[in-house]
Design a protein around this nucleic acid. Structure first.
Lengths: 476, 476
DNA sequence: GGGTATTTGTCCGTATGTATG
DNA sequence: TCATACATACGGACAAATACC
């Protein structure tokens, strides 16, 4: 005991027992105390160190719990044999974490379509819900949850879908997962092993890559959305579509095409429509576009959506709604899959929605994004009338076509060299399309309102496009 | 103390101590607790109810002040004789909280192999880290994160793997995702489009279902683990294996087989080994089994693991470590996938690990699970010597074979009718195997230590197996 | 060798500091 | 400022193991 010299600092921010615990653990690991040695008794050590018995007791208790020592009741504590790991020497060289972290985000202006307005997110409220959850949740939440996702969240989603999208479903039809990219393969497995899937061209780029094996069929898109007539000519039996705001063109599937599409699906048992409603929450003019799912009478539409845009990308919560007819197959084929979103997060979100914060947030964001959207389009219309804009009036991005003779990749690089990130539409092509002019996606979610104008001016100036002189009205 | 069931609601407007006080007072008045009974100590009760000692103290103090209990310093609190008040009849009817709670977990004893010991989880610490994260994290965490997962978490995992599994890798090789079921398809896509995968039989049941399309080849398992000779005779080029504790048999892949397997892999460019190290953290005798990955010289082993058992299932964090040679293909083929675990959770876990809580927790849990494991095996050895046990000495489950002439499904149903859930090994078969006796998995993670003996007695009695008379030592 | 004092881990009630809202 | 609750720390009571006489 004499050699056990611990420097305990009573005024340290670390509690006494922690210091004692750490010191002894270290001594044991480094073999300063041999295996089998009897440790000084609680009282002895407490006396020696001028601390209380309880303090020693807690420290010993911790060592005991972690297996460093063993207790023989009424005899003493003894140092245990530690499973020695032969490779514990020479610590791993520390990587320079800081340097690494700087790499990712270095753009002055980033027009990434996946960015949201983080500044306007009600972080304080979310934090409160998160904290409350950890305060009040039971340990049951540590165990594995329901495969389809927590009932409470599915309930809130069903409620939300009914209120804002006119979709009638019950929580049993909803399946929660992390990200549409991961839900889609599940849906495909559900429908049929060797389906042939039709995709919008251009379209959400991750999709074709997911399904290289299922030979994907590209279908063209015009200003009325997916060209259903073209789909009919193929032998695809599944179509993945973004009807309310086609990604990336922004086209809305016309009413005629909607009924046409539903008819197409009803003509064969193995035909299905996967409706991705990823950003329908943000629509700035006219009435909200009802979901295809709501018009479907034949259990043909699988509705897919996500909180990525409407809340935050990092939460990774997405879901699909199964038609009643597919519920049984779901249970047989996919029933064993565990939901991929941590239960804690599911409940935070469910509580957040239950108290109305989600709808409130959507209403707020709609206004904010509308302002950004208007600023963006107005800036182009006012200063750069030669740049044509498509994909108006909804979502969190638009498409611009610039009257230049350079390639999209050249222009993209040019912009990046000037600290501006833009995204060529060709990145989203499954099959080449000849665009008359270089065309880019501009996502405006991640830019502050005041940044939008300077960002556009910056972009145009590095493209060599000058401001038009007829600078009439500035913006609404 | 066991019968003292209080329903404390943390989010009630009534303070905790008030609820506790009222509950105890009620119990004393209604004579549910006899006069003179020693109440549970502050610590015990606080622990049991998951509240602080002080809270219990205040409640006891109030009871003390009102004369319901008396305090014997340093001995305990004792129920006092109460002048009975005649007008205190018919309390409000008991809420059927129990009924509601029963819905989800209707088994008295559930031997599910996926359950962990939630009671021993350091929830308070986890909660602190969660809260801190929400307090101090920036809004940047709302945006989408790195595809492979947050660097900080990958860094901690790399460190952990080095320290405890002898695996040398850097964070760039690690990919984080939610659940091994979702990571596996990614790995398969990475390696080759039309690989043929070999699986252990019996083995982790979700795997074959994931890969119905890739024709899976079952390979038998004996007491030394996967029979590599059998693998060699097939044309499979990928093998999925659980070397450190075969699921479900518990066999450890022998040293000879290990080198044999690595040799097999080195013989063709497209051969790979997927090493699932799902529960290697818990090993109760002998030295830890080093990972195959550490012995691999040819970039043939993809190491796969998860926090499901070592921390909690509901977090859904799993990861794989790519050999350096596959990094380039990863970036090309899978680089666009977003990590599926919410960034918040990734950072909570990373911070938790950084401060050493994860290793601490593992050491603690190893001890706790060892106790349960010993209790489980001792009970069988002592009372039911005709039941043979396999899959010893590691993990969170064992295998038992019962000397009965009924089918496994019959016995399973029999047990369930008696409120006990057990899991037939045949549920994990890819190809039928004839077991001489009905064989079941018993996962002991989710049962409290004290529940284990009664659970076994209950199970055996409904099977009609009597206790052996030579009840020598009860248990160690 | 049997009784007794001492040592020991375990359990306990109490007190104080601190964070939160 | 106050109520609530948690973390930390103190010192005594108890019973079993041990050492001593």
């Amino acid at each position: 005991m004499d050699m056990l010299i611990f420097k305990l600092e009573k005024n340290s921010k670390k509690p006494l027992y922690e210091q004692l615990y750490a010191g002894m653990k270290d001594a044991i690991i480094t073999k300063q105390i041999e295996v089998g040695t009897k440790l000084p008794s609680k009282r002895k050590l407490a006396d020696f160190l001028n601390i209380s018995q309880t303090t020693v007791e807690i420290a010993y208790g911790q060592l005991l719990a972690e297996g460093y020592i063993a207790s023989k009741p009424r005899i003493g504590f003894f140092v245990e044999e530690i499973d020695e790991l032969p490779f514990l020497e020479n610590k791993q060289p520390k990587k320079d974490l800081e340097a690494r972290l700087k790499v990712s985000e270095s753009y002055r202006y980033n027009f990434h379509p996946g960015k949201i307005d983080a500044e306007s997110f009600p972080f304080a409220i979310w934090r409160k819900y998160a904290k409350d959850l950890f305060d009040f949740s039971s340990k049951e939440y540590l165990q594995v949850g329901e495969p389809q996702g927590e009932y409470e969240l599915r309930f809130e989603i069903a409620h939300y879908l009914y209120q804002s999208r006119g979709i009638i479903c019950n929580p049993e039809q909803i399946v929660i997962g992390s990200g549409t990219e991961h839900l889609l393969p599940m849906i495909l497995r559900l429908i049929e092993a060797d389906s042939k899937i039709a995709l919008e061209n251009p379209g959400y780029s991750a999709i074709p890559r997911i399904h290289l094996k299922n030979k994907a069929v590209p279908i063209s898109v015009d200003e009325d959305g997916l060209i259903v007539e073209e789909l009919e000519k193929t032998d695809a039996n599944i179509v993945y579509i973004t009807p309310s705001h086609q990604f990336p063109t922004g086209a809305v599937l016309s009413a005629a095409r909607r009924t046409h599409l539903l008819n197409w699906a009803s003509k064969a048992a193995n035909r299905y429509i996967i409706e991705d409603d990823y950003d329908s929450e943000f629509r700035y003019i006219g009435k909200p576009i009802p979901a295809l799912q709501g018009m479907d009478q034949n259990d043909k539409v699988i509705y897919l959506s996500t909180f990525t845009k409407s809340l935050m990308p990092s939460l990774r919560v997405a879901y699909f709604v199964l038609p009643a007819g597919l519920l049984q197959s779901y249970k047989e084929i996919l029933g064993y899959y565990s939901a991929t979103v941590p239960r804690f997060d599911q409940h935070i979100l469910a509580n957040f929605m239950k108290d109305g914060h989600f709808s409130k947030h959507l209403n707020r964001m709609r206004k904010i994004y509308r302002k950004k959207h208007d600023r963006l389009t107005n800036t182009f219309e006012t200063y750069y009338p030669t740049v044509s804009i498509t994909g108006y009036h909804a979502g969190m991005h638009i498409l611009i076509s610039v009257p230049l003779n350079k390639t999209e990749q050249e222009l993209k690089q040019l912009a990046r060299d000037n600290g501006i990130a833009i995204y060529p539409v060709t990145d989203y092509l499954l099959k080449p399309i000849d665009y008359p002019q270089p065309t880019f996606l501009l996502g405006f979610g991640g830019l502050a309102l005041e940044e939008i104008e300077p960002a556009i001016h910056g972009l145009m100036s590095c493209f060599g496009i000058n401001k038009s002189q007829k600078k009439g009205k500035s913006q609404r």
